[in-house]
Amino acid sequence: MSELYAVRRGRLRDRCAAAGSAASLVSRPANVRYLAGGVPPGAVLLLGPDEDVLICPGTSVPDPGEGRPDDRLRITVLPAPGGDTVVAAARTAAAAGAESLAVEETHLTVARHRALGSVAPRLRLGDLSGAVEQLRIVKDEEEIASLRIAAEITDQALGELLESILVGRTER
């Protein structure tokens, strides 16, 4: 399974490199899960040229039902409760020498965007422009298998519901 996440991150890394961005920051929870596996709430994913870092808030508790993050990721947990994972990711990217960082602008608040500029003023910010969502449109074998299972469950539930409906029964 970790190979699947690594391939997905590789595709995004290639797109960002083609657009001229050395690193990218994924902050939308659904996109982070798509690229990293099961992650705690509030986690963000920093894709760098050399390594990928999952940055988790210090107060987050992973949900066992969500699964585990990809083993190939370096995981950083913020020491202080209330620390901003997006700001920590920008610091990490700047410290690694990245000159540009693509972010999910539609997911960032104005305050977070300003904080990014203040902690890493030399970091040129760009927009991912829905790149992860575009990758998510094309389903891989794992997703197709999950969709088939979901359709079978739905079909079975509808069949049982139709069998239980009695003629003459009102909605009340």
Rank of each mutant, 00 (worst) to 15 (best):
A98V: 09
T154I: 09
A93C: 11
A89T: 05
I165N: 01
A151F: 01
R124M: 11
P79K: 10
R91S: 06
V167H: 04
T85L: 04
S27P: 02
L73T: 06
I75F: 01
H113F: 13
T109I: 11
A145G: 08
D140M: 04
S146R: 15
G67W: 07
T170H: 04
R114T: 15
V87Q: 03
V32C: 09
D71F: 05
L25G: 08
E3F: 07
P62A: 13
T106D: 15
R112F: 00
A94I: 05
A145I: 13
A30F: 00
I75W: 00
L35Q: 02
G58S: 05
A90Q: 04
R124E: 11
S27C: 14
E141H: 10
A151N: 06
R112M: 07
V110P: 01
I137E: 06
P57F: 09
G10L: 10
A120T: 10
Y5C: 07
L4H: 00
A150W: 03
D140K: 02
Q134W: 03
P62V: 08
L35I: 07
A95T: 14
V110K: 01
A6V: 12
D52N: 08
L46R: 02
G65L: 13
V39C: 12
P121W: 01
L46T: 09
A151H: 03
I55F: 06
A23T: 08
D14A: 15
Y34R: 12
R33D: 03
E163G: 09
E133Y: 00
S2T: 10
T154A: 15
E171H: 13
S146L: 15
R15E: 14
T154Y: 05
R33K: 11
T59P: 01
K139W: 10
A19K: 08
L116A: 09
G126D: 08
L161V: 14
I149A: 13
